[in-house]
């Protein structure tokens, strides 16, 4: 089976500090992949290498190769603008723009030059439905996105990413700032779109990883300790550290 995302021996340095110590990991086409590990283990840093968001931090150096859909995303020919249209990202804190819901969801399309109102309208409805927030906001599309609750804001942010129709959706602890009900809605929503997108989710919540993901990777101190089918990793971990972490002995 061909993997959609393949990373080989990825090292990342913040100045002198080595934050990722040679990560070799791959994810199949479509499905949900979870990255777990204690705080500061490098899982978010790794996630941000996949759409080159780390480029924004001064003094970051990255070695190794990261291929998405057969394309080396760190080759000089890669345009980060095009890359980020294909690899969308949802952040830990809901971060809608202080504009209307409609403008938030269409933002990615409008910067890509889509002007046709009909296409925009269709895409708004479709993405808000995919993000399971359409029924709650369909009558208030012109209202400011900041007037929504945190959970609704986060789902609008997910819709904003889906509207661009990316291949990959990266989620950086998308539910850690939300209440359990909103988290549950987002988990259910992710399960409904798992066969359309390749999803990589960073989570602190082990139950969340075991509930929704097909593949799980465990990070510790900038290293990849173990990766495999979620069921196998949680039931029969190969490494002692993994066993200790998932059974709550540290982290």
């Amino acid at each position: 089976m061909d993997d959609f995302i393949t990373t080989k021996d990825v090292h990342l340095y913040y100045g002198e500090k080595e934050a990722l110590k040679g990560i070799t990991l791959s994810f199949p086409n479509k499905g949900i992949n979870a990255l777990i590990g204690p705080s500061g283990c490098g899982k978010s840093t790794y996630l941000r290498t996949l759409n080159r968001m780390n480029d924004l931090i001064p003094g970051v150096k990255i070695t190794g190769s990261i291929m998405i859909n057969g394309q080396d995303i760190y080759s000089p020919k890669t345009d980060t603008v095009d890359l980020r249209k294909k690899v969308g990202m949802v952040f830990q804190q809901p971060n809608p723009f202080p504009f209307s819901i409609y403008e938030n969801v269409t933002y990615g399309l409008r910067i890509a030059g889509v002007k046709d109102k009909q296409i925009l309208d269709e895409r708004v409805e479709q993405s808000l439905k995919q993000a399971a927030v359409w029924d709650e906001v369909k009558d208030d599309l012109r209202k400011s996105a900041l007037s929504l609750s945190g959970g609704q804001q986060q789902r609008v942010c997910i819709a904003r990413v889906l509207a661009v129709q990316p291949d990959v959706v990266l989620l950086d602890e998308p539910t850690s700032a939300l209440d359990p009900v909103s988290s549950g809605l987002i988990e259910d929503m992710l399960l409904t779109i798992r066969d359309k997108y390749t999803i990589v989710i960073v989570t602190h919540n082990l139950q969340q990883a075991s509930r929704i993901s097909d593949k799980t990777a465990f990070f510790l101190n900038g290293e990849l300790i173990e990766a495999g089918k979620t069921k196998n990793l949680f039931l029969n971990p190969e490494r002692q550290e993994t066993d200790d972490y998932i059974s709550g002995r540290f982290g």
Binding site: N51, M53, L56, V81, D82, L83, R84, K85, G88, M89, F91, N95, P96, F97, Y107, G108, I111, A112, C157, R160, V161, V164
Partner: peptide, 8 residues
């Protein structure tokens, strides 16, 4: 960040 991550 949100804007850049959307390919702006």
């Amino acid at each position: 960040e949100a804007s850049l991550a959307l390919g702006a």
